[in-house]
Write a protein that binds this DNA or RNA. Structure first.
Lengths: 241, 241
DNA sequence: CGACGCTTTGACACAACTCAACAACCGTGG
DNA sequence: CCACGGTTGTTGAGTTGTGTCAAAGCGTCG
C-alpha cells in the first residue's frame, strides 16, 4: 500500500473491498494533514462544527462532560481512528475530543460526505460499518463499567487497547507505549485516579502487567484474559460487493 | 400519515425528509409483522443472523452477556426503534435481544439494505443518522454508569425513558407504563436489583418519582433533572436534500 | 388454597472514594 | 550542574456507597 494513501482508506480497505475510484474519492474527502498540539481540544461538546477528523498520528481522548463537572472518557482514539463521525449527523457534538499527545489529523467535510454517498453508495456502507464498529466498542466499554470490578475492568481495558494498537502495528509482544496518566485512565474506567493506582499495583504484584513510565507490558496475557473475561474480537465482516 | 406506513419510515421521516419513492422502498425492505411473545430472545449474542428488526409494538431488552454470567442492558427498545442494526454489519451479533412484553417486530434483510443504498443513497444517510443517534444514547448511558451515583443515574434513566416514550406518544404528563422489573433496571443501571429498590425508595420519599405496579410517575421533573444532571436533548439535525 | 415472581427490609461485608501527605520524575532556568 | 516548580505517581487512614445474604410481605394465577 502506498504511503500517500490515507490511513482511513487503508483501514476501511482492510475489511471492505474498495475500488480505485472509491479510494481516490476518500482521499479527496479529507483535508491536508493538520498538526494538533498535545492538550488541545479540537472538538467541543455542544458545538455545531460539522466536521469529522481522521487521526493520522498520535493519541486523542474523546470524552463527555457532565453538568456536575465529571468526565467520562468514551474512547482513546489511536492512529487510523475516525473521530467525531457521530457529531457530523447530530447537530451538535455530544462529546469533546482533545489530543493526548502531539497529533496529526485531517478533516472530513460533512457536505462532501453526503454528496459522496450518491456517487459511491458502497462507501456509505463502509462508513456505516465503521460507525457500527465504534458503537460495538462503546457497548463493550459500557458492559465493562457496568458489570466488571475495578480489577477486571482495568485488565480488560489494557487487553483491548493492546489489540487495537496491534492492528496498526503499535504494539509488539504484549508491549506498547501508553501516554495516558492515571487521571485519564480513571475517567475512562469510571474510577478515581487513586484507585486506578491501587489496581495497577495489584496487577503488578500478581505479575500480570505493568505500566511504568509510558510503557505497558502485559506479562501474562492468558491469565489477564481469564481475569478480565476478555474475548478476543473475532475479526469482522467483510462487505462483499 | 397513513396507518399502513411503517414505524421506521415515520420515525426517519421526522428528522430526514424522505421522498415517496424512498418511503416505498423502506416499506419493501421489511417483512410482514411478526409477533414475539414476552420473554422470547429473538437476537442471540454470537450468532450470525444478518437481520435487523424494527420494533412495531411492545418493549424489548437489548443486552450483553459477560463471560462470568453478568448481564449489562444496553437499552430497552420501544416502539419505533431499530434493533440489531449493528449486528447486520459486524459478522456476529455482539448482544442479545429479548421481548420484555409481547411484541410485534418486522424483519429487515441486510442484503436488501445494501442494494437499497445504491438506489437511494439518501436513505443510507438517513440510516447512518439513525445509528448515530443510537450510539449517542449508548454514550450517554456509559457516562451515567461511569460517573453518576446510583441515585442520579436512576433519575437520569427515567427522565430519558420519559422523553423517548414521549416522542412516540407513550408518555403523558410525566406518567407512563414501564414493564421493567427491578432486576432489569439493575442490569441496565449497573446496580444490584436490591439497591435499585433502595434508590427507588429514596426517590419516592423525596417526592420526586414513583414506580408502582408498572406505572412510573414523575412528580417533580425540574428537581429530578437537577438531581440527575439531565440535559433535555435538543432535537436533532434535519438532513436537508 | 398454595406456588411463584417480584418487592421490600435489615444486618453486615467489602469495594471504591476522599482527603492528606509524601515521593519520584521532568523540564526549565539560574 | 544544581535548584526549582509542576506534574504525576504512591501510600495510609477513615468514610461511604453499594453488594450480599437472608427473610418476610404481597399479588397474581392456577
Amino acid at each position: 500500500m502506498k504511503t500517500e494513501s490515507s490511513v482511513l482508506a487503508t483501514k476501511l480497505n482492510t475489511f471492505v473491498r474498495l475500488s480505485e475510484g472509491e479510494r481516490r474519492c476518500l482521499e479527496q474527502m479529507q483535508s491536508a494533514p493538520i498538526p494538533v498540539e498535545r492538550g488541545v481540544e479540537f472538538i467541543h461538546q455542544g458545538e455545531m462544527g460539522n466536521v469529522a477528523y481522521i487521526l493520522e498520528s498520535g493519541w486523542a481522548c474523546s470524552f463527555k462532560l457532565l453538568p456536575d463537572g465529571g468526565r467520562q472518557v468514551i474512547t482513546f482514539p489511536i492512529p487510523g481512528d475516525c473521530v467525531g463521525l457521530r457529531s457530523i449527523l447530530l447537530r451538535t457534538a455530544d462529546h469533546s475530543v482533545t489530543a493526548v499527545t502531539d497529533a496529526v489529523v485531517s478533516r472530513v467535510q460533512v457536505a462532501r460526505m453526503l454528496e459522496v454517498f450518491s456517487e459511491f453508495p458502497h462507501l456509505a456502507a463502509a462508513i456505516l460499518w465503521a460507525t457500527s464498529r465504534d458503537e460495538a466498542m462503546v457497548v463493550e466499554h459500557l458492559a465493562s463499567v457496568g458489570r466488571r470490578s475495578a480489577l477486571e475492568r482495568t485488565a480488560h481495558f489494557f487487553l483491548e487497547l493492546h489489540d487495537r494498537l496491534n492492528l496498526v502495528d503499535l504494539a509488539l509482544d504484549g508491549e506498547f507505549t501508553c501516554p495516558l496518566n492515571q487521571y485519564a485512565l480513571g475517567d475512562a474506567l469510571g474510577l478515581s485516579a487513586i484507585h486506578v493506582n491501587r489496581v495497577l499495583r495489584v496487577l503488578r504484584e500478581r505479575n500480570l502487567m505493568t505500566l511504568k513510565g509510558q510503557v505497558v507490558k502485559l506479562h501474562n496475557v492468558p491469565e489477564l484474559k481469564q481475569l478480565a473475561g476478555y474475548e478476543t474480537p473475532e475479526e469482522v465482516a467483510v462487505l462483499k460487493r
